[in-house]
Design a protein around this nucleic acid. Sequence first.
DNA 1: ATAAGTACAGTACATTTGTACCATATGTAA
DNA 2: TTACATATGGTACAAATGTACTGTACTTAT
Lengths: 203, 203
Amino acid sequence: MNTERHFEHGTPGEVVPSGRHDPEGRRRQLVRAAAELIPEVGLAKLTHRLVAQRAGVSLGSTTRYFANLDELRKAGLTEMSELLEEDLASTRARLEAEGVTPESLTEDIAEFLDQHELVRISIELMVAANADPVLRPLANHWADGIVDMLTPTLGPVVARGVVLIMDGATMHASVNEAPLPKELLREILATMLPVAVPPSGEA
Amino acid sequence: MNTERHFEHGTPGEVVPSGRHDPEGRRRQLVRAAAELIPEVGLAKLTHRLVAQRAGVSLGSTTRYFANLDELRKAGLTEMSELLEEDLASTRARLEAEGVTPESLTEDIAEFLDQHELVRISIELMVAANADPVLRPLANHWADGIVDMLTPTLGPVVARGVVLIMDGATMHASVNEAPLPKELLREILATMLPVAVPPSGEA
DNA sequence: ATAAGTACAGTACATTTGTACCATATGTAA
DNA sequence: TTACATATGGTACAAATGTACTGTACTTAT
């Protein structure tokens, strides 16, 4: 119709080698790319172009599937937090198998801290929730899940205390190259868990 | 000399109403403005223009006193962390006056968490240290200071455990509008500090 | 008082970014 | 096969931003 546009840098739609129609797959690729990139580069540096490149799609697709960058960010954060959900499940499995002891908790924390991506995810989720309260439930989900998991054996107070220690250790691992030594974590838990955790009763 | 420049939007240096020469004061104003703004808007949104506006100086001054934005950021972060240093001093005063007890520690943490600026400072420092390892000592200073302070009475293991709880509570306060209830913090500390802290000896 | 040097304000400009837009390729129904 | 609809790639463009630059006001030494 109207050809009154400029096209300073060339005309649009010239070559176009590939590009099957696949809206759902497209969207998934974009979300997955965003979920990968957030822990890598941080939310602050997440751009349409970066996500498009990682997803292997054109810039235009990022605006087609997400009204604005904020929506893309949120979708990426949600997808990203799935990894925390998986970690939650593996923690539950371990604690059910080994019981809730300083040793089993130490193993779990140390394993978490050694996966730098999980640490980065936790931090970026916290930062995001700080900027947008809508994301608070997502950011609290992991911690609340652990509290629920530990409460039956440790009671709600100590359960929350253990989660605070986990989050503190996460902050430490985010700042420092090496996380706190596993042996120190074990000593902390062995010393601070009252009565060294009776098999099922309480104090 | 060469007047080959464009000046599309006007000629530079036209009116200039005020502007005493005061290099040192200028620099201080800029650093102070940056230190104020970082907890307010976050490092990601700290720009030359924003700092200049807050400091009440021209854009040009920001580039005159700092080779690049990163230097301005670092100067602001360093100045900002002075508030944590002051908090460290007040904590030391309290613990020396009241002794290291679950109650005195609870008071101190609750007071910290209620000062949202301190929480924001801790978080931004952590984020910054994650992006630039040069800032790690700055980010670790507060936690290490508390550990040193608590170690004589609690031993190094529990001292680090208490600091992890503090950092965990800081993360929680960063995400949620209201920090953890003081009573819960007190219960956590009262339960998890072994033997409820004998006046000076160890277990 | 005057000249030289420095600080300052106010631009200018290249780059990056979010987002809108369009021509074409792909898919679907007749 | 031919219309029609939609997805895709490739821009276009305005706003924001880091930083360089320039003319002028202020300061200081003579």
